[in-house]
Write a protein that binds this DNA or RNA. Sequence first.
RNA 1: CGGGACGUGGCGCAGUCCGGUAGCGCACUGCAAUGGGGUUGCAGGGGUCGCGGGUUCAAAUCCCGCCGUCCCGACCA
Length: 482
Amino acid sequence: MAEQKALTTRAADFSAWYNEIVARAELADYSPVRGCMVIRPNGYAIWEQMQRALDQMFKDTGHQNAYFPLFIPQSYLAREAEHVQGFAPETAVVTHGGGKLLDEPLVVRPTSETIIYAMYAKWIQSYRDLPVLINQWANVVRWEMRTRLFLRTTEFLWQEGHTAHATEAEAEEETLRMLGVYRTFMEQWMAMPVITGRKTESERFAGALRTYSCEALMQDNRALQASTSHNLGQNFARAFEVTFQTAEGGLDYVWNTSWGASTRLIGALIMTHSDDLGLVCPPRLAQYQVIIVPIYKSAEERVMVLEASDRLRKELAAGGVRVQVDTREGLKPGAKYYHWEERGVPLRIEIGPRDVSSGSVVLVRRTGGKKESIRLEEIASRVTVAMNDMQTELLQAALGRREAATLRGATKAQFIAKMEQEGGLVYGGYCGSGTCEAEIKEQTKATIRVLPDPEFRSPVPPTECMWCGGSSIAEAVWAKAY
RNA sequence: CGGGACGUGGCGCAGUCCGGUAGCGCACUGCAAUGGGGUUGCAGGGGUCGCGGGUUCAAAUCCCGCCGUCCCGACCA
């Protein structure tokens, strides 16, 4: 019976395992509109935690929030040649309004560069107006051919930062600063290790000068682009006439950046930490960090245990812990344990009559922990310690899995074999030729995730291209990706 | 758009070959007992069998047409 209810194991079919986690934890569901996702309360709660943390980090780096329209005149998209090429195929277009055919079709934003820089053109006159540091929390629509809950849906929620600067150096600094913000968030909040670096020409954002990203490795050894940060140069400024008078009195185009992260992060979170019992959520992002399960038989015990549970809930809540008591009647404790485990609650406290009379409770960790009996007076501090430990251990575990799946300095044959078999990350020399890149994708399905930043590079830099043997211009990280 | 599969209560499926009262599991509702790792028992509600046409005394089942969904590829945060 228990086996029948166990999750599909990760190894057997990662995709089925993922879908089952999403369904059982009640995170999201498909909507009647094809490709569009409904984020259910449990999933949205995680998003809210993410939003809160990221938003604070954006404010700490001097950004403000604003909101721009959902509709973009079709002609705006066309002003930046590369941009329209990149996005036109996947746009949804509104042709009618108020029952009449519109003079100009309106595109539902696939991203907001164009509408935002059209506004910046009005707002920016002088170098004194710079920098403009704005972020928007919004939904966007991209008509993808195939979708997957959280990872790729027709409509998704995200934040997109759009900044304007007086110099190229400042724009580059901003681009890298925000890449760092994402990295910090992913490591410290999501407990998800990432590799940062630059994208190659083929994966660069349409219209950008340079694209950087945070790449993470999932438990099935496929890579996931978790966020991006673009230095847009003056491309959009030229297209939208965003000019300013310099301190020296000349006229120049501004330098723009844009950066974004989406609800895809929830998918990343699931695929990074979860196990065959269900979702595993790092304490810092959990909707409920602690669930208290009262255990009782008689009516007297029930009153006693519920009172004790509520006192403990109040004590923990007063200390800033997100905690709830599972007071549902008619369910055996075991059923409640499974219920909260598949929803990823980091810590569980069991309180029964024996605990109440002995002045203690049982503390259980979602991952790898045994049941521990804790004195009531110590519980608050032990909960804090357990959460901190868990946050660190999840990151370490994920890091360990990534390192185990990483191959550095591979030969061409080793690389092909690895991609055919277990997958994972391969570091190797790259000659910079798009031909090599295309050939590799064709033969192995692997792509260059990133040209890694210095701290991720191999101690001994490769001198030859892993594929053609020509001289290497950079080290690249290859993987099959989502 | 190319290749494959599937449409039967909310979900997952059997039944289709060989036509004959629409079933099972889970979930849901009610009552009772149970309760330290997915509890039992009893009772109950819910289905135009994807849509349209045809064959037949009789169609979930056979025939024709259409529609939809999913999986594999190209696109992608």
